[in-house]
Structures are given as structure tokens and as C-alpha cells.
Amino acid sequence: MAEPRQKRTRDPVETREAILRAARTLLAKDGPEAISLSEVAHLAGVNRGTAYQHFKTRENLIEATADGVSEQMFRAVFGDPETIGERQVEDVDIADTTDRLVNFAMDNPELGRIWLLQLLSSPDPTADPFWREYEGSLERFASTDNSREGVDAEVLSVIMLASAFLWPVWARSHAHGEEERRALAHRFSQEFLRLSMYGSVQPDRYPQVAERLGRKVAKPAKLRAVGK
């Protein structure tokens, strides 16, 4: 007599990661509005009930997916979040950090898209760990003698990160093969650093702009959570 067939058991951690991978794929492709637990479950190869066991609502799933992307970016660019508090501003290698950011963006354009979409739609962007560390590191740098006077860390962070995640879209549209994409990533890092170090114009050729930037201005308003 044949033995009864044993029911296959799934690893809960592996199942959760499969669901999150599927959610990342759909978020990058269609954005959060198009996400449903049913569609994510289908792509992940699990039934809908299993998906609901891990994530009670689609909002829970989207939030968990975005948090995972933010943590992945954080580790790739800054290292272990547990030890980040031990780092001093003077210890930061600006060129190395720039290269890590640009290479991560080039290798993971879909993750960059997810992160940007979620940050833009968030009622409180400062709650995102990667944004908080990136903008915070520029804020700390701006308070040192190594910085030019009057740096607006928040605005500079938006400019830098938006361009870092837009460049891979351009590169993948125009590059032929991995070697050319690497070359484009290097070009971006170089220009990124040049702008940080020297700016784009000769100040004496634009005295009106130099005068404007030299004026004392009110401290810029920081991002605030909606309703606060």
C-alpha cells in the first residue's frame, strides 16, 4: 500500500522573500497604484492566502518592499546600519561613497525607481533610513570647515540622488554592453565629484550670481510630514 503523500512545507523566510521580490518587480514596472496582493502572489508562485499570512494589506506589502529597498541601498552605499554611528565626518571617503552610490544605481535601476517613487509619495520623507542618512551626512559635512558656506544639504541631496538614479536610465538606453555601462558610470562619478569640488562656472565671469549666492538668506525650511 502506497504511503500517503506528505504535504510540502515551505520555508516562511524564503516565501516572504519571494513575495517581496515579486512586489519589487511589479512596483518598478507599474508603480504602487498597480500593486495587488493577488497579482504579487501569482508572480511569486504562492496562493493568495499565503501572501495574506505574511502581509495583511497591500499597504503593508508596499511599505515592507520599500523598507527593504531602502535598507539594501543603505548597506550598499554606507555599510552596516548598526555601526554607522561610529563613523566621523572626517572618516568618510567622498569618492568611494560616490562610486558606490553610482554603481548601485547603475546595477539596480528598478530598485532606484521604487525608492524614488516611494520617497516622492511619502507624507514624511525623513522617515526613510537611506534618505535620512544621505541628507544627514551632507548636513553634517556642511557644518564643518571642509564645506563651502551656505550649502543647502536638503536641496543638494535631492539634486544628487535624482540625477544618480536618472543616469542609469540614460546609460541603458545608449550603452552597448556592460563595459560601456561601466564607462558611463565612471563618467557620472567623475562629473558628480567635479561639481561637488569645484562647481560649474568661474565666479568672476558671473558677478551677479556670485553676489546673489554671497548674500545672507533665511535658513531654508526643512521637509515636514504632512499634517505636522
Rank of each mutant, 00 (worst) to 15 (best):
E63G: 06
S163P: 10
K7G: 10
Q202R: 06
V77H: 00
G85F: 09
G45H: 05
L138S: 04
R140H: 05
D107P: 11
G31E: 04
A76P: 14
E149T: 13
A64C: 02
E82F: 11
A105F: 05
T144C: 11
L43Q: 10
R16N: 02
E90M: 13
V201Q: 02
L213F: 07
P4T: 02
S38Q: 15
Q72G: 11
R194G: 10
L213K: 00
T25L: 12
L61V: 04
L156Q: 14
Q53I: 11
A44W: 01
F130A: 00
R205S: 12
D145Y: 04
A153L: 06
D107C: 07
M197G: 09
E180T: 02
E82W: 09
I19A: 01
I84S: 15
E180V: 12
P12I: 05
I159W: 12
L195G: 11
S121H: 13
L120W: 05
W115E: 04
N47G: 15
T126L: 08
D80C: 13
W167F: 06
F192E: 03
P203N: 12
E191N: 08
K216P: 14
P168C: 03
A23Q: 01
V169T: 10
W131L: 14
Y206E: 06
E154K: 14
E154M: 12
K29D: 14
S122M: 02
E191Y: 11
S36R: 02
F141Y: 14
Q88I: 06
Q88F: 08
N146S: 14
A28S: 14
A22G: 09
L120T: 12
V92M: 07
D124I: 01
R205N: 14
H186R: 09
E149G: 08
P220R: 01
W167N: 04
A218Y: 08
Q88R: 07
R16A: 04
E149R: 12
E71G: 03
N103F: 13
F130R: 00
L193F: 04
G214K: 06
G136A: 05
N108P: 08
K219L: 12
R87Y: 12
M160F: 14
G68S: 01
L37P: 03
